[in-house]
């Protein structure tokens, strides 16, 4: 419609940087819910990136399935493991007090 390519490029750069940052958080976060949330954010931003890459079908699929359903499944499983009375899910396997100083006592 208009000459908007610098704008689109800027949006793409922002999205890519966001995704990389969220991916690093997802790998490194101490508390498990935060890791899952960050992975959900990666999918969410990826779906905007798909829209920028002119693939609305893929964007909608990623939003509904990749970001939505996958995150819900993760949280269901996390809740079940937590309900088993084992807080292993909350912390890192190799750092005994990881995830403890989390503000919200999950």
């Amino acid at each position: 419609m208009m000459s908007m390519s610098p704008l689109i490029t800027g949006i793409t750069v922002l999205l890519c940087v966001t995704m990389l940052g969220a991916a690093v958080v997802a790998i490194r976060a101490k508390a498990m819910p935060i890791a899952i949330l960050a992975a959900g954010l990666v999918s969410l931003v990826a779906s905007i990136l798909f829209l920028v890459l002119a693939s609305p079908d893929v964007a909608m699929t990623e939003a509904a399935i990749g970001s939505g359903l996958t995150t819900f499944l993760f949280f269901f499983v996390l809740a079940r493991i937590r309900a088993a009375g084992h807080d292993d899910a909350e912390m890192d396997a190799d750092s005994p007090d990881g995830g403890k100083n989390d503000g919200v006592r999950t």
Partner: peptide, 14 residues
């Protein structure tokens, strides 16, 4: 539209 069976199915499941 950009929709389809897989997306719609996921929305119904949601």
């Amino acid at each position: 539209t950009p929709g389809g069976g897989f997306q719609g199915g996921a929305i119904i499941a949601s």
